[in-house]
Structure formats: structure tokens, C-alpha cells
Simulated scan of single mutants.
Amino acid sequence: MRLASLPGLSMAVIKRGNLVWTQVHGVVNAGTGAAVRTDTLFEAASMSKPVFAYGMLQLVERGKLELDRPLVDYYRPSYLPRNPDIDRITARHVLAHTSGLPNWGDENKPETLQPAFSPGRYFRYSGEGYFWLQLVAEKITGKGLDALMRELLFEPAGMTRSMFAWDEEHLPDISFGHRGGKAVASHGMRGVMNLILPRATKWGKPVRDWMHEDWLRVAAELQPDAPPVRVRFQNAAGSLLTTASDYARFVSIVCESPRRASWEITDPLRRAMITKQIAVQQGVPLAWGLGWGLELGAPRLRFAHEGNNEDLFTSYATGDAARGDGLVILTNAGSGFGIVQRITRATTGFDPLSFIANMDPPRDA
């Protein structure tokens, strides 16, 4: 960690579906020297996506969302350009990254949001698709992202240290992100929380209960002369705050188990999460399920996901579904990925292809 200029790290290991080991190292802020604790919150970055995908499959099981119904039947955001391929995108396409949408586009430049191919044809990693599905879920349920995921997953699973939206109560527990070994105090939500919290008090609506329209409203108040950045706030693709032990609980839920709680998705949908929907590249044993990347070249199938928020936080989680084993690593610097790779190889004995994969690979058309 010292060699990598990585200030802080939190890890958890599950065996046979049970959390058996947690460990923390380093500091949450290189400037103050405050130590990482087991309950310190890290930005999970793109590891948000499998968590959100699980919630969407819960909605599928409850009959509120259809995997193969076009999302425009539920809600079509005004910023999306007119394109018949967009009108065919479904929740399945979004969760498997086959929508053709870019990772991120600019709502003020419709050409940047055009799909690269007809949905379902190829793999193309897309945060845009997940954000659109988040808006669909809000329209279906009438609840904001964090409130919905608290109801569906966090509270029943005992993930008491997981949230998609920042709030005043947990602000002191959130690790700073680091660049070049130095804490970045103005990153993301941390830089605007002192402006947002008074609005929540004035409105009588806690931040964690806000819907996307509330975030747009506060953005308009804070910067009336600038178009709001719609993905700046709570975001299904990347704003999850969590601990290693909380995320390990989620990994265990995705693994096989002889008993499932009534709130969990049934085995057919759980298996669908970790069943190949699309190859990342043809002829390579790396694929995508519904929310998870799949390492098909391992001795047994491994599901996994990485995360990186602006090179300030890096993270990784992987599980062996058949054995119920798993590993979660959260770090508070972009330099953490080299450490993540070494820990993963040493712990699992496997060298994941996702560590070197191009997530927007060349296509034959």
C-alpha cells in the first residue's frame, strides 16, 4: 500500500456463504490520519450495478417490471434521442450491457447518446442504461433509488451500512478519495453536501428519500444558469456507499444456498444473474450475466465486478457461486487497483480476465 500510495483499504471474505473474515488497513484521510474502521463507508463505484440489478430482479418477481418489455413502455427520458433502436431496449439489455448505449453521454448533445448497434447484438458497457432503468424504477414504484433499495435489499439483508445517497448522519463515516496520496475534499457529493442538506431540512424530506426530480430541483437552485448534471447525485450505476462486510453479505446472497428468505429472488432468477447473456468478445471466456461479469475460464464459474470512481476509489468483488466463497476489496484511491489484483490472485488462485478486458471491444459491424 505504501509503494502504491494507497491510503486505505477494507476487505472481507466469505466461506460457504458465511462472512468469516474482515480486515482494514490505513487511513480514511491521508491529511488527518484518521484510521479506516470496519464500518467506514467507501464508494463502491460500478460495484453499485449488481446491487441495483438484484433490486430490479425483485421487481420482476413481483410483477412490476418485465425483463423483455421495452423500457419506453414505462418511461422515456426527454434527453434520449429519437432512434428506433432505443425504443427496443429492455431491462435485460441494460443489465447485460447489450443496449448499445454508451457508458456515458451528454444530455445536451443527443448524438452522444445514440446506440452503437441494435440491442442484444453485442456487449458494450453502459452506465447510461442503468441510469435509465433507475428512472424507470422510480416511475414504477414512486420511490427514489435509495428508498427503494432500502426496502428491497438493504434492510431485509441486514446491509445497514449501505446506501445510494449521502446524508448528514453518515457523512463523518465516509472515506475521502485520494489522488497522488492526497485526499480530495471537493469530490462529488462531499463538495456540495453543505449546500444540499439545508434544502432537505427546508423541504422536510430526508436526502435518502429524494427522487431524481428532487435532485434536479436542488441542482436548479444551486446553479440556476447551468444545465443540471443528471448523473451527479444518486446513481444506480455508481453511487453506492458500503462496507466490505455489507457487500460480502450481498455476494453470499448471490451464491447457492439450500434455504432462501421470502424476500430474496427465487433460484431461477438468481441463476439468471450469473448465466451468460452475452460474451464480452467472441472466443474469450469472459461474459456478462444480469448485473455481473462472468469468468468462464475459472475452475468453476466465478461472478465478479470492479469499480472505479474518477480514479479516487477502486473496488472489486468476486464469488464462487457453487462453493459459496467470496472476496470483497474496497480502496480509497485510484492506485488501489494494483493491490486489488494481487490480493485477488493470492486469495482465489485465479487471474481474472476482467482485469485486462476492454469493456467497449471492437465489433464486426
Rank of each mutant, 00 (worst) to 15 (best):
M47C: 15
R82V: 00
P50V: 05
L135D: 02
L101N: 08
S126I: 02
V24F: 11
S118T: 09
P77H: 04
E111T: 08
G26P: 06
I86P: 04
G26Q: 07
P70D: 10
W104P: 01
A91E: 12
E138V: 02
G127E: 03
Q134A: 09
S126T: 12
H25Y: 14
M56N: 04
E111R: 13
Y130W: 09
L65T: 03
D85A: 12
K109A: 12
L41H: 13
I89W: 04
M56W: 05
T38G: 06
G127K: 06
V136H: 00
E66K: 11
D68L: 08
P115V: 10
N108T: 08
A116Y: 11
G33S: 02
Y74M: 07
Y74G: 08
H93R: 12
E107D: 14
D73S: 09
A35D: 03
I89E: 10
S99H: 04
G26C: 04
V36F: 11
N18T: 12
L113A: 07
D68P: 11
V20S: 11
P115E: 15
A116N: 08
G63I: 04
E61P: 06
S126A: 14
L113C: 13
V136L: 05
G105E: 00
Q134F: 07
D87F: 00
G33H: 03
D85K: 02
A91T: 07
V27H: 09
D73Q: 11
K49C: 02
I86V: 15
P81R: 12
K109L: 10
T22L: 00
L80G: 00
Q114R: 15
F131Y: 13
L67Y: 00
S46G: 01
S46Y: 09
V24N: 15
E111Y: 08
V28Y: 00
L65P: 11
L67P: 06
N103V: 05
W132N: 12
R69Q: 14
P84S: 05
N29E: 02
S78A: 13
L101K: 08
A35L: 11
S126V: 05
D39Y: 10
Y74L: 09
F123M: 12
H25A: 10
P84K: 04
S118Q: 10
G127H: 03
A35S: 00
P70W: 01
E61Q: 15
T90C: 03
D106N: 15
Y125H: 10
G17E: 02
L19G: 01
S99K: 09
V72P: 01
D39W: 09
A44T: 15
